[in-house]
Computed example of a mutant assay.
Amino acid sequence: MWVKPPINCYKLNVDAAFFEDGTGAAAAILRNNRGEALAGASWLLHHLLDSTTAEAVAIQRGLELVEGLGCHQVIVESDSLEVIQACNGVIEIWSPYTAILADCFQKSYRIGVVSFTHCLREANRLAHNLARHSFNLNTTLVWDGDPPSFLLSDIVDDVTLI
């Protein structure tokens, strides 16, 4: 299940959907230490090489969202173990998404304190549902404030289970 971040910290959950034709969608949701969804976005993706690249793009776009909101202490959480290990220097990043992660590191430096953690898919349900929604409706979605109504039940479930 999803776990709240510490006080004075935000959690950015990211996820991506990838299809063999090179299309997909990425999503990011920023929540505070009370579990409230403060902002989020989803983006349609094209010309992807693989699913791991899509996951790296989700982190990149999520960090852009965080940077734009002026947050300075963030835990980035993804269910892509390979990308999280690459972000933490556990594995070498000689792959199609190397340049994307280099950009993520630059954004992280500008943001302030950013850590990268792996989570199970069940803990990343909100970002997963947002990416799937964006792809299914062929639309990009951005919000700052109240989340879209189709996500509310997942947000409530996450917060009440804790």
Rank of each mutant, 00 (worst) to 15 (best):
I84Q: 03
D103E: 08
V66F: 00
L81T: 13
V113H: 13
L65C: 00
Y109I: 11
L69K: 01
Y109E: 02
Y109H: 11
E77C: 13
V74Q: 03
E64G: 01
I111A: 09
E64A: 13
N88Y: 14
S115T: 14
L65W: 01
I91R: 01
C104W: 00
N88L: 11
I91T: 10
Q85A: 12
C71H: 11
S108F: 13
Q73F: 08
G70Q: 00
K107H: 03
A102G: 08
E82D: 13
L81E: 12
Q85P: 05
D79W: 09
G68E: 00
I91W: 12
I100V: 15
I75H: 00
S80F: 04
C104P: 00
V83W: 08
Q85L: 13
I75G: 01
G70E: 01
A99Q: 09
G89D: 09
I93V: 15
G112A: 14
I75Y: 05
K107P: 00
C87F: 12
S80N: 14
C71Q: 06
V90C: 03
G62W: 00
G62Q: 00
G89M: 07
A102C: 07
C71A: 13
S95C: 14
I93C: 12
G68Y: 05
E64T: 10
L101M: 08
V90D: 04
G112F: 11
L81W: 06
S108R: 11
I84C: 06
E92C: 12
Y97Q: 02
I84Y: 04
L69A: 04
P96N: 14
D79Q: 04
A99F: 13
I100L: 02
L101S: 08
L101V: 14
L81V: 13
G89L: 06
D79C: 09
H72Q: 05
E67M: 02
S78H: 06
N88P: 04
G62R: 04
K107D: 07
E64M: 01
T98N: 02
Y97R: 02
R110I: 02
K107M: 11
G112H: 06
V74T: 08
V113A: 12
N88M: 10
I84G: 02
I91D: 03
A86P: 01
E77A: 15
C104I: 07
A86K: 01
I111G: 06
I111L: 05
Y97P: 04
A99D: 08
F105Y: 06
V83E: 07
S95K: 06
A86T: 09
I75W: 02
D103N: 10
D103P: 00
T98K: 07
E92D: 13
G70N: 11
S80E: 07
V113F: 14
S78Y: 10
I75V: 15
Q85T: 09
A99R: 14
R110C: 10
S108W: 04
S115Y: 00
V113I: 15
P96R: 06
D103C: 09
V90R: 13
